[in-house]
Write a protein that binds this DNA or RNA. Structure first.
Lengths: 226, 226
DNA sequence: AGGGTGACTCATACGATGTACGAGTCATCG
DNA sequence: CGATGACTCGTACATCGTATGAGTCACCCT
């Protein structure tokens, strides 16, 4: 078994990065470049659009070359997902007075980040917790704790918010991919027996953002009554 | 293009169902039998364990025979998923006095139904809304409406509950598949900088059921203050 | 100078998978 | 008795993830 790369870091630093042996238009393969290109592919073609061969093609490399930098396709997914979830904006948040606005802002950003890359929503539940996800959870913990949520309720509060955001994002991310499904479902509504849903036009309501925000407000009301 | 089966119903009724041409141990192929066997396979081997060939093997049939009863593999997933989500218990609910208990009961049942088949959690977000899902949503609508939730807030309330249940179920369903991930994540916690999460032992808390219930209570408090 | 080492690339090949195609079987009906 | 339709299934194909192992090249040590 060759030594190979694995797990964490160790990018090796060579003396002369690229001695212009090939066209400088094709920088050398690297984990970062692989992830970036995987993002492009996923955005353009969706989950099924990402294949190792296509990915390698876009990188101007042979398919098997990827496997030096990455253990397997699953790892590509993990890395792509976590790279979507970076969050900048921690500094202000720590000193802010309005914790509620902070929480809402972070969670809305979380949601929009994922919706910018709709594949991420269906991917997240199956994947491990990367550092960026943990960073957001840590931030959330800190803010809620500062806001006076009792320690005994803290985990419940965090998971509730997590659940809400995940559910909303996953649902949304997969619904607008298929307007067909919605109209098909709506068809079933009228032809069969779902009068209340039909009356409220549940499946046709398009104000996802507003609904997300309002529901989040309700949940926060329950978690920390004002 | 042959006529083939598609979309809704039309099971055809033959005069003599199975004239004992083969061993009676192998009843004829049917959509129902396919779905039932797919459930077995999914429960036993997980999402990746379901392949058309394996499914056909278990049914004592050739792989291509399935395609008479089913359009493609996606449809198998759709049918399997919806079959997990049947709900019995509507009669009592309609006349009950305690709407809150009714909602909690239905949502807890929803969650446990899916957790009995962990693959369903990762599947649901990508799939269409089958009749059983719609039935539950209808029931929820009716109950909340009866409980006095304003019409203007109804959709938000339903989506909030949906989001919460989906997020909780998906998260849970995928977490206990991989205790490794949790310990790995916990490792990252101690070695790096997530003090609040570490202190609250967020990732090690095992009381999923309790957390679900408590968070649901908080959400309901927000939706319909008592 | 020369040989070794380790980082990296890649062609080939293998075993799987979903499913298109078309030929087969058989009960039923005109 | 021939035709029709319902149903089954063997074969074949394109595509996938990736194991294997040979190739290239920069660098270091002696």
């Amino acid at each position: 078994m060759a030594a190979k790369r694995s797990g964490a870091g160790s990018k090796r630093a060579r003396a002369a990065p690229q001695p212009a042996q090939e066209v400088p238009g094709e920088p050398p393969l690297s984990r970062d470049r692989i992830v970036a290109t995987a993002l492009e592919l996923l955005d353009a073609q969706g989950l099924d659009g990402l294949t190792m061969r296509r990915l390698a093609d876009r990188l101007g490399a042979g398919a098997m070359s990827l496997y030096w930098h990455v253990d397997n396709k699953e790892e590509v997914f993990d890395l792509a997902l976590d790279s979507v979830l970076e969050y900048r904006g921690q500094p202000q948040m720590v000193e802010s007075q309005d914790w509620r606005a902070d929480v809402v802002h972070m969670l809305e950003d979380w949601r929009t980040s994922m919706l910018r890359h709709p594949w991420s929503a269906s991917l997240l539940p199956r994947r491990a917790l990367g550092p960026n996800i943990l960073g957001r959870l840590e931030l959330l913990s800190k803010t809620l704790s500062r806001a006076g949520v009792a320690d005994a309720d803290l985990n419940v509060a965090i998971w509730s918010l997590w659940n809400y955001v995940m559910g909303a994002t996953i649902t949304r991310g997969n619904f607008d991919l298929s307007d067909d499904d919605r109209t098909a479902a709506q068809q079933r509504l009228t032809s069969e027996r779902y009068p209340t849903i039909e009356r409220s036009r549940l499946l046709l309501d398009d104000d996802w953002d507003g609904a997300f925000r309002k529901g989040l407000d309700f949940l926060l009301d329950g978690l920390a009554p004002r």
